[in-house]
Structure formats: structure tokens, C-alpha cells
Design a protein around this nucleic acid. Structure first.
Length: 445
RNA sequence: CGGGCUGUAGCGCAGCUUGGUAGCGCGUCCGUCUGGGGGACGGAAGGUCGUGAGUUCGAAUCUCGCCAGCCCGACCA
């Protein structure tokens, strides 16, 4: 993409309403624009990041064998009356009445709807196990939206639902979600720690929240520093291997890690003192096993091998997709701007032409732009007639992991410069070497 | 939902106390000079002063109502 043809309305000054880094930087980098309290438009670059995150979530869900689908944003009230949640949910749920005076609601989640779909079409244990998910906009009428997309009223969320015959099968589904989530966050360049959590209005017994450590997090967390060192790396995972998944779950959940809601001082005291940590965290996902909580009252029954009609065991599992954009920035920024991890960056590298209009510089930039594009790096070429300082400041702000600097001075020696945003380290090299280097970095993406 | 604060140009703000018909910086547009960390000079566009009513000869400014947004708390992913 050429910057002169893009829409990137960056701000030099900080908008007064933005308090925390991610909100401030998303506004300054031209990623979002507030529409009303807790509701945002996603401008091209913000949307690009959102779509990348969404893509990673899709890939990892499908790798785990979960099936993508799409349910509507507006749901009939009847379904929620059946589960008893129409009254239980409270004013957070946005209620709407259509012209026929039918009660609708803008879905804050989809347990009722998915259960309805399930009971209509599935009646035998032979059709199990089944895990369906979708990525859809949700609405919760927060009393006090704040922190930009981190706590908006409208938000994009992946929510998945598993249907299993037995508690054992459902626990396997739970573990499958835990492992796929660990992998999802790791691919985005985030360290998210599963913590034993409280179940809230979804209800249920077994539940973990995934928290990204950040000073601006909404939850207070307590954990054993041993979890910080855990990583999945490139280990081969077989999502049908129950023992392997259970072992990974054990590995991640054995060290103490809880939010303030479930924190237990006595247990925490058993952690060696030098490994005890208390910090703040941003919740970016949660998994639940809740058994027959919805299947029983809503009649989601299947026939088992003995010919008996039994309620299915269910769980639901969410990832806050839009919130992740904010969480990523909270975890990855400095005083100059955002520092995108390569897994989610909107563009792979920025090309800065220091002397727009100079024949040699223009030609070198065009050449690099074409070759990096062909190599799948997806570069953003700053071809504006701005001075170097302005171009550098913009690149620092929008946080692309790599900056390619092209100017007459270097070109006279046959070199261009490659700078890593995270460390600020620069290296001069020939254009050929630079293309090869970036192509290799992004080959896996 | 309790407490606090703020609405003036795209963004950040001044002006309000003491009423006289709106200003600064950034950004935007045009031009010239510049050219390796938000450059300089010259010119230009852009405002129902959140909104409604009241007081007054006259309201951005004073009074009351409403609306919106932000912060702290409670709540929440």
C-alpha cells in the first residue's frame, strides 16, 4: 500500500478523552473513531489488525476441529425466556421491539440460540461430539464504557459451544479449547495466562480466564512466576489425543494462578515466596464447562447407546477479538507509539523514502515496494513529500515491526537501512539482502 | 447507578470571574525555499460557541432545564 493512496488519519496530539495507552494510540494512529460511548468505527488500518486477529482465531479453531458458522446479532426474546435469562440478565442486555411488537435483543452471547439449533437437528449420540463457533458482534450495554475498545459496548467476539455425550467428553472439549487458546495467543505474540476464575452470568463449574499481564488491566491477579516461562513453541499437538491435551492443561494450570475473584491466600502462601507475583491483567478469553445447564431446561437431548434420552453436556468458550487489539497494544508499545508483533501487524514493513522526487530514491523505493509485495511482506510505502522526521514519527507511531529507510546518502553506497521497531537497531544492507531477510521473516506467517 | 468534571474550527486549548458579536497552536489547502527525527516563510479555507428557554438594548460569557462525553466508585468480557 502506498501511503498517499491510503486512509491513515494520524493525530499529532493526544485526544483528551483517551486515558490509557492503547486507546490513545489507536486514536492517534488512525485505527478507530468513536461513534458514541463504547461504540467505534474501525478505520482501514484498525480494521486490518482486527481482521488479522480474527484470521488467526479462525485458523486455530479449525485446526482444533471446531466448525465455523454465523448466528445473527438480533435474537428473539422467547429463547431467552426459555432459559430464564431474559429476566436474569438485567439492563446490560439491549432490548428492542420490532414493528410487530415482538421482543428482540441484541445478543450479548449465544448459548440459547446455539442450543436451539442443536436440538432441532441433533438427536443421537452418533452425531456427537460437535463443536460450533462463530465470530460475531455482540452488545452489552455497559453502564460505564471506557478504555476504548477494551471495554466497549459493541464488541467482536469469538464464541464457541461444544456438545458432548458425557462429562468426560466435555472435559476433553474443554482441554481442547484451552490448548487452542494458548496457541492462538502465542501466535499473536501475547503471553496469556489461564487462571481459575469465577463463572459469572454464564454459569458453570469449571472455568478459566486467560489474562494478559498489563498495568492497565481491570483484574487483580495472583500467580506463581513459573507460568510465565511456559510456552507451547512448535510442539506437535494432536487435538484428538486426550492424554496429551490433559497433560498440557495440567502443565499450565498446576502453578498457582487466580484472579482476585477466586484468590485463596492460604493456597497462594504455599508458593515459594520468590515466585509469588501479584499484578494486573486484561481478560482476553474465558472457557466454561457447564454440563447440562442449558440443555436440560431447553430440551437439548440425545439418545444414548442404551436408548435413553439424555441432556447433552455443554461448554462455551470465548475470545474477545476486538478487545485483543487493545490488549496487544497495552502489551506492546513504548513512548513513541505502538510496537506490533509480526503475527498481527497491519503491514509487514514500512518503506520510508527520505527524498521523495529524487530519481534514484524514488526508483529504489518502487523497486523495493514491488519486490517486498511479491514476497508477501505487504509493505506500506510512505511516498508522501514529507520530511524525514515526519515520516519516522509516523512509522514509530503506527508501529510496523520493520522500517526500510531509503535515501540518497545510502544509495550512493548501494545500501538501504533496515530498522527494527522494537529495539531501534539499524543495519545497512543491499536491497537484495533486505528483500531476502524480510521475505524470510514473514515466510511463516 | 452514586460522586466529580467537561462541551468554543478536524485535534489540543484560551476567552467566561468583570456581558459589547470569537482567538491561539497543531492539522488541512495553495505557493516558495528546504530535505536523514514532526523545518522555515508567505497566503487561504474552516465555528449553529452541545441544545432549549430565560435575564438584558446586547449572551460563548449570567440563570434554569435537557442532551452528550470523560474521570473515580459500584458493576462488567
Amino acid at each position: 500500500m502506498r501511503l498517499t493512496r491510503y486512509f491513515l488519519p494520524v493525530l499529532k496530539e493526544t485526544p483528551a478523552d483517551a486515558q490509557i495507552a492503547s486507546h490513545r494510540l489507536m486514536l492517534r494512529a488512525g485505527m478507530i473513531q468513536q461513534s458514541s460511548a463504547g461504540i467505534y468505527s474501525w478505520l482501514p488500518m484498525g480494521y486490518k489488525v482486527l481482521r488479522r486477529i480474527e484470521q488467526i482465531v479462525h485458523e486455530e479453531q479449525q485446526r482444533a476441529g471446531h466448525l465455523p458458522m454465523l448466528m445473527p446479532t438480533l435474537q428473539p426474546a422467547e429463547l431467552w425466556r426459555e432459559s430464564g435469562r431474559y429476566d436474569a440478565y438485567g439492563p446490560e442486555m439491549l432490548r428492542i421491539r420490532d414493528r410487530h411488537k415482538r421482543d428482540l435483543l441484541y445478543g450479548p452471547t449465544n448459548e440459547e440460540m446455539i442450543t436451539d439449533i442443536f436440538r432441532t437437528h441433533v438427536s443421537s449420540y452418533r452425531q456427537l461430539p460437535l463443536t460450533l463457533y462463530h465470530i460475531q458482534w455482540k452488545f452489552r450495554d455497559e453502564v460505564r464504557p471506557r478504555f476504548g475498545v477494551m471495554r466497549g459496548r459493541e464488541f467482536l467476539m469469538k464464541d464457541g459451544y461444544n456438545f458432548d455425550l458425557t462429562p468426560e467428553d466435555a472435559i476433553h472439549a474443554y482441554n481442547r479449547h484451552m490448548v487452542s487458546y494458548l496457541r492462538t495467543y502465542e501466535r499473536m505474540g501475547l503471553k496469556a495466562i489461564p487462571m481459575r476464575a469465577a463463572s459469572g452470568p454464564i454459569g458453570g463449574d469449571d472455568t478459566h480466564e486467560f489474562l494478559v499481564l498489563a498495568e492497565t488491566g481491570e483484574s487483580e491477579v495472583f500467580y506463581d512466576s513459573a507460568v510465565e516461562d511456559l510456552t507451547l513453541g512448535d510442539r506437535a499437538i494432536d487435538y484428538d489425543d486426550r492424554a496429551q491435551l490433559a497433560a498440557i492443561r495440567e502443565e499450565w494450570t498446576a502453578p498457582y494462578a487466580r484472579t482476585d475473584e477466586t484468590h485463596d491466600e492460604a493456597l497462594f502462601a504455599q508458593v515459594p515466596e520468590e515466585r509469588r507475583r501479584s499484578a494486573r491483567g486484561i481478560e482476553v478469553g474465558q472457557i466454561f464447562y457447564f454440563g447440562t445447564k442449558y440443555s436440560e431446561p431447553m430440551g437439548a437431548l440425545v439418545t444414548n447407546e442404551a436408548g435413553e434420552r439424555v441432556p447433552v453436556h455443554m461448554g462455551s468458550h470465548g475470545i474477545g477479538v476486538s478487545r485483543l487489539v487493545g490488549a496487544l497494544i497495552e502489551a506492546h508499545h513504548d513512548e513513541r507509539g505502538i510496537v506490533w508483533p509480526e503475527g498481527v501487524t497491519p503491514f509487514g514493513a514500512g518503506i520510508v523514502n527520505l527524498r521523495q522526487g529524487d530519481a534514484a530514491a524514488d526508483a529504489a523505493c518502487e523497486d523495493l515496494y514491488a519486490r517486498l509485495s511479491a514476497a508477501g511482506v505487504d509493505p506500506l510505502y510512505d511516498d508522501r513529500s514529507e520530511r524525514a522526521g515526519a515520516k519516522f514519527a509516523t512509522m514509530d507511531l503506527i508501529g510496523l515491526p520493520w522500517r526500510v529507510t531509503v535515501g540518497p546518502r545510502g544509495l550512493a553506497n548501494g545500501v538501504v537501512e533496515l530498522t527494527e521497531r522494537r529495539t531501534g537497531r539499524s543495519e545497512e544492507m543491499t536491497p537484495d539482502a533486505l528483500v531476502a531477510r524480510l521475505a524470510q521473516i514473514y515466510a511463516a506467517r
